[in-house]
Every structure is written in C-alpha cells, then in structure tokens.
Design a protein around this nucleic acid. Structure first.
Length: 339
DNA sequence: CATCGATGTTGAG
DNA sequence: TCAACCTCGATGG
C-alpha cells in the first residue's frame, strides 16, 4: 500500500480541493450508501492524515475515516488543483513542467539537496505543480497524472465505494479496507490506538513517546516498527530501508536498543517521510543527483537499498541481500551491514 | 489472456 | 496462524 507518505499527500489534496466545499457524496457501488447519505451536501471542514489513516471532517462534527489497505486508491478528476507542497510524477505527453520547485526546505530549515534535481525538463518525469487543470490524478501506491478528455463528471469506473463531487472536482475511492462515518468520540478512540506521526508533530515529546513505547517491547525491532500503535505510518518498504540505513539487524529486540539509536530511527523516519510526502516516491537512498535521481524516480531498484533486492549484492558491502518472513510479511535486509 | 502478488488490516479459528 | 478483503500492475505462456 500506500505507506504513510501517500496518505498525507491525499489529505493535502482534499484540503486544497474540497475543504470549504459542500460536496455531493454518493456510493456508486452501493456498499456505502448509508454512510454517504450521512455526509451528503455537508461542508467539509478538515482533512487530516494520521499514519495510514485519513480523516475528513464534515460540519465540524462527523468524520469520514478511510484506510486504503493494500490496494485502495483515490482518483481525482475534473479541474484538479495540486497542492503546492507536493510533486506528482508521471508520463504526461506534451505536458511541460508547470512550476519550479527549487530546493526543498524541511521544517527544521535544512534543505534537501537531492530534491532540487527535479527542476529539469524530463521526457517522462514531470513535476506537476500549479493552477487547477483538467486532469485525472490517481493517488495510490504510485501516483500519476494524465490528461482527461472525458465529460465531467466522469462515469464511475469499476467499484467506486465513495464519490465526492463538487462543481469542479470529483474524487472516487475504490478498494479501501475501511470507509466509515465516525463521531468525534469514535475518532478519538481510533487515534488512541495510533502511535505518533512525525509528519504531524515532530517534537522531542513525540519522539520520546515513540522511544518509550519501543523500548518497552522485547519484540524484534523489525516487528515493532510495523506496529502502528508504536509509530504510525511505516510499512514494509520503509521498515526494511530504515533498518538498513541504521545498520540494525531486524531481529534485535527493541528493548536492547539504545535510546539514542531509537531516537535516530525516529529522526531518520521523519526525514524519509518528509521526502516521501513531497516527492511521492519512497526514495530511501540519499544523495542521488541528476540522471541517478531521475532513474530513482522511475525504477524501484534504484531508490532502495534492500527492498525487493533479495539475492543481489548489497550496494554498500556486496553481501547478498537476504529475504525472509517476519510477521507474515517479507523482510529484506543485509546481513553484512546490519548487526 | 490468465495468474500472481502487493507498499495492510481484520477477524475467524 | 491464516484467509478474506477486492484492485491492478507485473509476469508468463
């Protein structure tokens, strides 16, 4: 799925295109007709992401909670506005770059240099930022933007669980694991079961919350990082890549890891997440520039250290990358680099 | 064109 | 522990 970064991107798209509007809400597929009727025509007053969950608020009271699960996706259509803080890459024939992103500044004031490579004209790598334009924008595991010549609003394609529709924009949800209307109290209950999310609050206190929860567990750190009640938003890709970057063996019991090392994990996660939100790709190899960076945008193998690279030599030490099962998921790591 | 597998979670057993 | 959820790109014949 979409790990945490995608959900933050989608929430930003809702902020820009729907908050302040009174969308018509329906369930073309029918499986969410009752819930849709509860929020139909009401004003969307907030859009938030916490970990992998998104919450859309209506009339400052009820919330639509959406979890994309492993293959859920949102499709935006119509005159779609792209949030100025995010980039969307995709093949868009004849579509020149609409905006310059320049260097990308992080909340701490530092500048992530490898992002600046985006300001170049690319044949099939396009940075899309700017005014609303007629487009189809898919927000899922892999975001994309295409021209859209269909009439507006488009006929629902496939099983659309929810459609939100304003005069100018349409958002279709398909394949979610969760889609329900909640009261504020019910939302609180969900949030209580979620750990901190550095994209919402990256403070020493929040970092301590993570470190406290993690160091209370003797479970393998590879499992703890996937536990959404410890740290919200990490999935299978970021887990593998974060542990490689930290040089930590995924089997290490969390409670045997230094506080300082756990703090460093939080900091690194905050940084990777930030890049993921901005770029729309899980770029977990640092310092790529120019053609290398462009290649990383297109090819998964070029942006990761270990994920789905089993059997190939580690890019750092040459040891073959290991694949094993951990917690019903595939775990990729380098026995040469991670101890 | 059929089949597989996935960046996730829930809930039955 | 494992199937179900229900989508779709990648893979193979």
């Amino acid at each position: 799925m979409p790990e945490g970064h995608s959900v933050h991107r989608i929430a930003r798209q809702f902020k820009v295109n729907f908050v302040g509007e009174r969308p018509a809400v329906s369930s073309p597929q029918g499986r969410f007709s009752e819930g849709a009727a509860m929020i139909d025509g009401r004003e969307m007053t907030d859009a938030r992401a916490v970990g992998k969950q998104m919450f859309l608020e209506f009339d400052h009271s009820d919330w639509l909670r959406v979890h994309l699960g492993i293959y859920g996706a949102w499709d935006f259509a119509g005159d779609v506005r792209v949030d100025p803080t995010i980039q969307i890459h995709g093949y868009t024939p004849g579509h020149s770059k609409l905006g310059q992103t320049g260097e990308y500044s992080r909340p701490d004031g530092a500048v992530a240099k490898n992002i600046s490579a985006l300001d170049r004209d690319g044949e099939d790598s396009v940075t899309s930022i700017g005014a609303p334009r007629r487009a189809r924008v898919r927000m899922a595991e892999q975001d994309s933007e295409r021209e859209d010549r269909r009439a507006f609003p488009p006929d629902p394609v496939g099983q659309v669980r929810v459609r939100l529709l304003t005069e100018t924009v349409c958002a279709d949800l398909r394949g979610p694991t969760a889609c329900e209307v909640l009261t504020p109290g019910e939302v609180d209950k969900v949030l209580q079961r979620l750990g901190p999310d550095p994209a919402n609050e990256n403070t020493p206190a929040e970092r301590d919350r993570f470190v406290d929860r993690a160091s209370a567990k003797r479970t393998a750190i590879g499992l703890v990082l996937m536990d959404q009640s410890v740290l919200a938003g990490i999935g299978n890709v970021y887990r593998a890549e974060l542990l490689f970057r930290a040089g930590i063996d995924p089997h290490t019991p969390a409670n045997s890891i230094d506080r300082a090392a756990l703090e460093a994990l939080w900091d690194d996660w905050a940084e990777l997440l930030d890049i993921g939100i901005t770029v729309g790709q899980m770029i977990t190899i640092d310092g790529l520039e120019g053609a290398d960076y462009d290649r990383a945008l297109r090819e998964r193998d070029e942006r990761h250290w270990v994920y789905k690279l089993e059997g190939t030599p580690c890019k750092r030490c040459g040891t073959n990358i290991t694949l094993e099962e951990m917690g019903n998921r595939k775990l990729y790591w380098c026995a040469g680099c991670q101890h």
